[in-house]
């Protein structure tokens, strides 16, 4: 399918957004990369999905994507959830891109709430959908104040909040959106990824772009950048761990989702990253519940064909 015969049938611009909007988003992305971790305001547009469904991530992807890209979209680690499938089909249709579920094959990975388990390589771009870009917002509701706190690197309030958590719970509580310091300068919310994924941001090979549509902010972590999760010497940063292995693929290292199986209290833990789990099962790994009915749902048999078919169905 060529660009030319696509654009004849299209009633909108390449990659959905108009060129002026793309220029505006692109300028914001460049400044975000130049000031790692700083939230650049941008003129977020109305998108064909409601706020909370990835409007920030979609605008970033639309601004950077080209026909040579291979696009992957995940929601909570899974490629086959409604939001991820919809957004993947959207870009297959409006940007003529190939789509994939394999992390290694993707050039742009749009995500909500996870970083894939497979290590990211140079040249890959992660695009995060961010609900609340301001890490200090829960502590200070005024934008004028948080902006000044970032300007003058005044992050005592954040440390106080961590200390109060230690005083109340005996540990630094909070499992997702755990605050980080980027290149030892800007305090940043890594978006609601589990803190399990925070270490993947540190000195990553990939470029990480964060887009908040409702809050109208974009920020970035370039490749090979220091990203430090805040902690105390006597209460060091720790990630989640599980006693169970993945019920389907037997992986002990991945981030797990707990799945309730029935009313009798039976449950299983499975990899949250569906493509990673599927790859492992194809490679012959089996967990204690291999063969379970859930096993057949995501064994690396991606729905790229579905997406290609969707492109053909032009309204």
């Amino acid at each position: 399918m060529t660009i030319a015969n696509q654009s004849n049938r299209r009633a909108y611009n390449y990659a959905y957004l108009d060129e002026q909007t793309k220029r505006m988003v692109r300028r914001a992305i460049l400044k975000a990369i130049a000031i790692p971790g700083y939230q650049v305001p941008f003129g977020s547009r109305e998108m064909p999905v409601p706020y909370g469904w990835g409007t920030g991530g979609i605008q970033l992807t639309a601004a950077i994507i080209g026909p040579d890209d291979v696009y992957k979209c995940i929601d909570q680690g899974a490629d086959d959830t409604t939001n991820a499938v919809s957004i993947r089909r959207f870009f297959a249709r409006v940007a003529d891109v190939a789509t994939t579920e394999r992390t290694q094959d993707a050039s742009i990975i749009q995500t909500r709430h996870r970083i894939p388990e497979a290590p990211l390589g140079p040249g890959q771009i992660m695009v995060y959908q961010v609900p609340q870009p301001e890490p200090l917002r829960g502590l200070e509701p005024r934008e004028t104040e948080t902006r000044a706190m970032h300007a003058y690197e005044e992050y005592g309030l954040q440390y106080l909040s961590l200390y109060e958590s230690v005083a109340a719970f005996g540990r630094i509580a909070g499992g997702a959106g755990y605050p980080v310091l980027v290149d030892e300068r800007y305090l940043m919310s890594p978006s609601p990824i589990p803190k399990f994924d925070n270490p993947k941001l540190h000195q990553s090979e990939a470029l990480h772009l964060f887009g908040a549509g409702r809050e109208k902010r974009v920020y970035a972590v370039p490749p090979h950048t220091d990203v430090r999760s805040l902690d105390f010497e006597d209460y060091p940063f720790e990630v989640q761990s599980w006693d169970e292995v993945c019920g389907l693929c037997g992986c002990g290292e991945s981030y797990k989702d707990e799945v309730i199986l029935d009313d009798a209290g039976n449950r299983m833990f499975v990899c949250s990253d569906s493509a990673y789990c599927g790859d492992r099962r194809v490679a012959g790994h089996a967990g204690p519940m291999a063969g379970h009915a859930l096993d057949g749902l995501a064994t690396g048999d991606d729905n790229t064909d579905d997406d290609a078919a969707a492109v053909g169905i032009e309204a």
């Binding site: 660009i3 611009n13 390449y14 990659a15 060129e19 793309k22 220029r23 692109r26 992305i29 460049l30 990369i33 130049a34 601004a63 950077i64 994507i65 080209g66 026909p67 040249g123 470029l207 970035a220 370039p222 490749p223």
Partner: peptide
């Protein structure tokens, strides 16, 4: 090509600012 040439140019510029 207004849309695609601008995209290609930006993408390489973004890459060179990131690296």
């Amino acid at each position: 090509d207004l849309a695609l040439d601008a995209q290609r140019t930006f993408r390489r510029l973004m890459d060179s600012m990131a690296k």
